[in-house]
Design a protein around this nucleic acid. Structure first.
Lengths: 212, 212, 212, 212
DNA sequence: TATGAATGAGTCTTCATTCAT
DNA sequence: AATGAATGAAGACTCATTCAT
């Protein structure tokens, strides 16, 4: 594998970014295995060889693209949550709004979403980036919760769980629609569950003492 | 694409099954893209050309393998749950046992699990098989719940949710370990959540009436 | 690097040999680096892919070709020497005849000769094959000498030296002609030297006792 | 192919020499085909494009390097021989010393030696430079012999032969070691041969009159 | 002169599929 | 039905050289 260059001149830096952006776009839309370096070069308006000035191989383009964009594709939820000013006193309404907005944002990422999940599960390095981004997201949510006045046992795990639940719901609603399901009811159930998770529920408190 | 034969003689049927089994095994362990037809043929103890007597193409082997084995790989949970005799009166303990057993079973499927998730997200036909199997699983769980004496609102959705949550937890515990998390606490939280989902919780009942 | 097949059917065995023969011929005539697998395939009247059924890569074709042909290209001398019936009693005349015949045979290998020497010096595996063939040749010459009635000190080294000297002369006369040299005289000098090497020369016997 | 500049300013001359030196060093150590112009430029501390200010192509760097350094790599023997003051009266001891010193010097050139031999045999222009340098060396040795008081028939050819034999021995001892050979005996045989070549040997004188 | 970015033809290699027997 | 040989299109990557600044 040849050496790669660090772009120095302005135009070259732009070229490198262009390769990441266009390459990642193609990969997300058409699938990593269906995209070849020639098409990336063409789409980025450069020659094939130029790709290899800045990247060891096609894979590296993918990884750079993931590091640049994965957060906003997989966890747009964070940014949306950050804008909720009165989360603690208004949890169910706020969280429902957040979920619905997240679903909307994720609608644009349908193809990318599937392709990236596919890569996460077939490529160890991609998997690691996912884990890192997920951890980052968890920490951010935890911070938001703390800033919003929460101070819970196992709060970080709960933040993690929140993220996973939201993503699950978004997947269900955006990509996995089973026609016979009543998704509105499901959404309310989910919010009820999250209430149990984030608020002291006397019933649940009792259950806590049950050893299982 | 040549025509394929429907095997009639016993030996031919056995050959076809052998191709499915060995091919699917190789795909699960090494990845669909890394396995070529020559190695499948070799592993199945037949000649390369003979594969195409029974299958239009490599892809068909995958699909047949999925139809045959996907259920037991992705939803071993069902079989385990079926054996719990006293689910309703003993939910938290029973469900914890079920989860732990499921985790154990899934440990053996680590490679297959990732590869199949990868294919689910990159291959529409695989995706459809997943959806079918998931629906089947949901219906079975719903039946089990009914037989166990449950009669809940949105029971099917809840069954669906139960499956998703279990799978999420198994993934977390088997494949996605973040070192800093306390997985024991997380497991208990999950069970608490499932209690909220399957039992009337006064606190939650109140919340139900909140419009969000 | 993919797996290779052992040809089983007659035609396939012929195909493999054809690849070795035609590939080696092209390499010898045009140079290893100038020959590509496509041209080998074309010259052997097969498809590019078929080359890789029997060889891991281009390099393996070279090595197989060397093992098959290097001996007769580099050491045709042996076969020629074998035919001399009265070597011991007629050494100078016989050895001159052998040298001249060897030169004639080697004239046909001019291109091959240079290319192979080039590869010997740039490719460790080729180098090793050269060494093996050279040792083989040395042993054969040693046997011929013994059969011809020689029984000398360090006879094997002398055989080795004989080969090297012959090759040197052939190179000089066939490929390295400096116009200003009198090659006929040189040839006679060489034969004189070989006499010194293979016969008891009183003068030299004295020198033997000199410690240097 | 663009035109090249003849460097006039001191710095430019230094740059050109740097390219030759560093380029030739890389080629000798890593092989002509494995070294690319980018790495030569980098190693010479200039930019890629700048190489082409001084050289038409990569090949020209090689040729310039050869013209500059080939003599001292291939024929260090000359310089060593030049220092022997009493060659004629002390031939066997002197020549043995010369050979051993030459072997020592050549030990440092192992990689270069092979690479250059490889190029000699694959590149006609390189071949020509080799021939020129060899002729130069022959003439120098001839001069040394004359100055040392020799006045032999075919003295130039003998000088040429001397060089070739020395190189052969050095190769054998430095690079081609066959474990089963007794190299000390071989060295003595070689010196004995050279005695036959450079001194009137009565036995051999007789043989001279044999017509073969 | 010098820089480093850009070019694009060329090469090896893979593999699903088809063919001949 | 079965074998294993053959096909050939396609893709990743290299690198000497030229270009724009």
């Amino acid at each position: 594998m040849g050496n790669v260059r660090q772009p120095i001149k302005k135009k070259a830096i732009a070229t490198k970014e262009m390769i990441i952006d266009k390459g990642f776009e193609l990969i997300c839309n058409n699938g990593y295995h269906s995209v070849n370096t020639a098409s990336i070069a063409k789409y980025a308006n450069i020659s094939t060889g130029n790709v290899y000035q800045y990247f060891h191989d096609k894979h590296e383009i993918l990884l750079d693209g993931l590091n640049k964009y994965l957060g906003s594709i997989m966890f747009p939820f964070i940014e949306i949550l950050e804008k909720e000013s009165d989360l603690k006193n208004n949890f169910p309404v706020a969280i429902k709004r957040v979920i619905l907005k997240t679903i909307e944002v994720k609608k644009d990422y349908k193809k990318a979403y599937h392709e990236l999940l596919s890569l996460e599960n077939s490529d160890l390095e991609v998997f690691k980036i996912f884990k890192n981004k997920e951890l980052e997201a968890t920490n951010k949510v935890n911070d938001i919760l703390t800033k919003s006045g929460y101070n819970l046992d196992n709060q970080k795990q709960k933040a993690h769980f929140l993220i996973n639940i939201i993503n699950l719901v978004c997947e269900e609603l955006n990509y996995h629609q089973h026609e016979e399901f009543n998704y509105d009811a499901m959404l309310n159930e989910v919010i009820r569950l999250l209430m149990c998770l984030f608020y002291n529920c006397p019933n649940c408190r009792i259950q806590k003492n049950i050893t299982f």
